[in-house]
Amino acid sequence: MTTRRRFLAGFLAAGLTPQVSWADIGNPSFLSAAKLADGSYRLFGLTSEGTALFSVPLQGRGHAAAAHPTKAEAVAFARRPGTFAQVIDCCSGLVLAELQTPQGRHFMGHGAFTADGRLLLTPENDFEQGTGQIGIWDRTTQYTRVGEFASGGVGPHDIVRLPGSDHFVIANGGIDTHPESGRTPLNLATMRANLALFDLDYGATEITELDIALRLNSIRHLSLRSDGMVGFAMQWQGNSSDVPPLIGLYHPGSVKEPQLMQAPDALHRGMKNYAGSIAFSADGNQIAISSPRGGMVQAFDVAETRFTGHWGETDVCGLNANTSGYIATSGSGRIVRYSTSGAAKAVDHPVAWDNHLVALTA
């Protein structure tokens, strides 16, 4: 460890940026943004048990991050609606680049790299036109913006890359917003979310919508299984007394319709029509969603599409898989590990964790 630190310090003193890998900084399992007690914001690298390996400063409140496939480099996105994204060297804490959306756009808090790590794709809201766009940024030229394409819907939020390919699934949440009205939906009369399958060479190859009765269900966040199945989490924009499903399974490129699931009525209502994050278990046999509004995590069996259990946790939102089940973060600073058998272990940090817990997949 001492040798590596001296080696890296020598590079930095010389004004050089080494091509440090995630292994060089301890192989973190996750990235998460947080607010500190002094009001500042940082991006943390966490182990699979929730121990902090590093933290680097952010210029404002973060939402999620995109981790480079191999380099110890992350793009931290502002909370929606935000216009900045910082490319951070997670070894030195240096800001390598700052991305700014074109005029009339804002980021949506998420992004994804191509398989080779060269291009970064960023969901964006064109708030003057009321349409979704995906920005394209080239890492090899210091993250210059080199293009964009239509997202296939309104309000694109999350984006994931399918395994072993440069095919991407985009969650078009369907909600049109404008900075002058904050996060207030402007198009509830015509709102319609969808899942869009994109190929960088050929564009949109598939657009999937839910039944028209569920058109007010905003598809927000995605989780990817190793075989390409996509889980999606939703946030209902209709009446609070309604009880629509909040989680579904999507099979890209298949004629199979999305499969929707929900917990028994009382527990389902306890989620308050809001799923904040979603994650498959490590073995892919289960999938879970979190609700900061409901203070709950719910798990489902994938093959049988049935509810299997739940855990209560105040202000829980960030969610991902670990070796024994799931790991979740909360605004209280707690990081809780849930085993698929029902046991839970927690570690506390003096921070308020933000919305997401991003896995490093390389």
Rank of each mutant, 00 (worst) to 15 (best):
R215F: 09
L8M: 15
A9T: 11
I219C: 09
G325R: 02
L119Q: 07
G132C: 05
R334Y: 07
F44G: 08
P69I: 11
G253S: 08
R5P: 00
Q235N: 10
Q259K: 13
A171V: 11
Y202N: 14
S240C: 04
K35Y: 05
E73N: 01
D201L: 14
C317R: 00
G135M: 05
N125M: 15
H221V: 09
A115D: 09
R192D: 01
P292C: 00
I335R: 00
T308Y: 03
A9R: 11
R139A: 14
F11T: 00
L53H: 00
I175K: 07
G312E: 10
S55E: 15
S32K: 02
G153L: 11
L96K: 14
R139V: 04
G147Y: 09
N322G: 08
W353K: 03
W236I: 02
S332M: 13
G203F: 10
E73I: 12
S92L: 03
A14V: 03
R161V: 09
L94D: 15
A213H: 09
T177A: 00
K35F: 05
F168C: 09
F30T: 02
L319I: 01
W353C: 06
E128C: 05
R215T: 08
Q133W: 12
A14H: 11
Y326W: 15
K345T: 15
L53D: 00
G15Q: 12
G231N: 06
T177K: 01
G228M: 12
P102Q: 02
T305Q: 13
R220T: 09
A352I: 10
W137L: 12
L121H: 07
A193Q: 07
G153H: 10
T177M: 01
R306Y: 00
A66I: 07
G62A: 05
T140I: 03
I247F: 08
H178V: 12
L36T: 10
A14S: 14
T47I: 04
A67T: 09
D38T: 03
I287V: 15
D265K: 13
G248S: 11
N355F: 00
D242L: 02
I335P: 00
G104E: 08
A282I: 10
G342D: 04
P163R: 07
S290I: 01
T144R: 15
G130V: 02
